[in-house]
Computed example of a mutant assay.
Amino acid sequence: MACRAGCRTCDLDRCGRVGRVTTLDGLIDGIVDTHVQQWNPRRSPRLGRRMSRVQRVVPRFGDRVFSVVSSQAEREYLLTPRLVARAYEPRQYSNDVAAVPAVCGVPIESVVVTDAYTPLDEGEYPPDDHCVAEVDYLLGLPFGTASAPALGAMMVRGNPTLDGFGERLDSQLAVSDRIRGIQINASRHPDPKVRDGCQTDGLLATPAFLRGMEAVAGRGLAAEIFVYSHQLYDVVSVAREYPDTTIIVDHLGCPVGAFGPVGLRTGTTAAARADILRLWRERMTSLAAQPNIVIKLSGLALPVLGYGSEPWGNIGARDTLTHMVGPLVKHVVAHFGSSRVMFGSNFPLDKPNASFEMVVGSLLDVLEPWGEHVLRSVFRETARKAYRIGD
């Protein structure tokens, strides 16, 4: 979408519309969203946990019950139980992205999906039939029909330290040729009120994990890793051990508390927040020295960054989001280059704080001065290469 004068980007207040628009029309056919989660409490093999049961049994009171039965860490991570207690499938996602063409001129072309939100501790693993059933569930979703974008690739959860990890991978790969790698949640935080994604400190640097990664590397798969920013040096260990394996880091390396208080004592002062960002910048610069690491511009509105704890949202305006995440995005692009940076929405987990079009618009505001090549790479080309979409 261009202004009346025909330029590619402008302040459309001057043209009778509100907001800044940078059009991707003519640059790419559509956006690749590299971080979409899909689930259904009634259908996902591994999801029927406490929150979904609460909302299903007492839907009118589920939100109130959530604040009573869940921990502070869970509340701050999710903001509202509606995210995991109700289905989020292609129909819901299509509704969320419907306004994207009005913001940037192109639709969402394809998505990379993951399995259900429910975390998988490293000490447990679903039965083999559930591993396959999760893939079957994702394959059965109506992507590529009606207004839903195409399914570009899938990532499956896994923990290389567990016995039988390689065999489980093989059983999943036999079901679909769209699986491009494993997704590892190794997030651990010293603040006891910040949500942990696993139960082992320094999981990525353990000999068992590094040995188990051979099953990933040997099958030509990627490893997608979610850690908090103080754990980023552990990602370097993985990247060095397996230099020919693509290592994808989720959510900008997630500097918890960078924008405000989180948990018990994280980000509670301006000095503490400045220190969080200083250390994040240093660690991201170290990651950039490893050529097989790719960074995902996802989780930009993730609550644990410190936006606030109100369940109806804490950011408000696109300009606010742009102002807050802009320096982080610029640091990443400057050090990694556009060929190792890609967009991901992290929907629906970011949804309470920001609409989809707000996230896309903010990234456009930040990236537009870098030029058309960067826009093409971040919103489409890097993702297609990293996930081998179209192969």
Rank of each mutant, 00 (worst) to 15 (best):
M1G: 13
C3R: 03
C10D: 12
R14Y: 12
C15L: 02
G16F: 06
R17N: 10
V21L: 10
T23Y: 09
V36C: 07
W39G: 05
P41F: 11
R42M: 10
R42Y: 13
R42F: 11
R43S: 11
R46C: 13
L47A: 14
R53N: 09
F61K: 10
G62C: 09
S67V: 14
V68S: 04
Q72N: 07
Y77W: 09
P81T: 08
R82G: 15
A87R: 13
A87E: 10
Y88E: 02
R91N: 08
Y93S: 02
S94T: 15
A99V: 00
A99L: 11
V100G: 00
V100Y: 03
V111E: 06
T114N: 03
T118G: 01
G123P: 04
Y125D: 15
Y125I: 05
P126W: 07
P126T: 07
Y137K: 02
A150W: 07
P160H: 01
G166I: 10
S171C: 05
Q172R: 14
L173Y: 15
A174R: 14
A174H: 12
S176V: 13
I179R: 00
D191G: 08
P192H: 12
A205M: 08
T206L: 08
L210T: 08
R211G: 03
A215F: 13
A222H: 00
A223K: 09
V227D: 13
Q231T: 05
D234E: 15
E241F: 05
T245I: 01
V249H: 00
P255L: 05
F259D: 04
P261L: 07
L264R: 13
T268D: 07
D275K: 14
L277D: 01
W280T: 04
R281D: 10
T285M: 03
A289T: 12
P291H: 14
L297W: 04
L297R: 04
S298A: 14
L300V: 11
S309L: 09
P311Y: 08
A317F: 05
A317P: 02
L328Y: 06
V329N: 06
H331C: 08
A334N: 06
S338E: 00
R340E: 08
V341A: 07
L349C: 06
D350E: 06
D350N: 12
P352Q: 03
S355L: 05
M358D: 10
R380E: 08
Y387M: 07
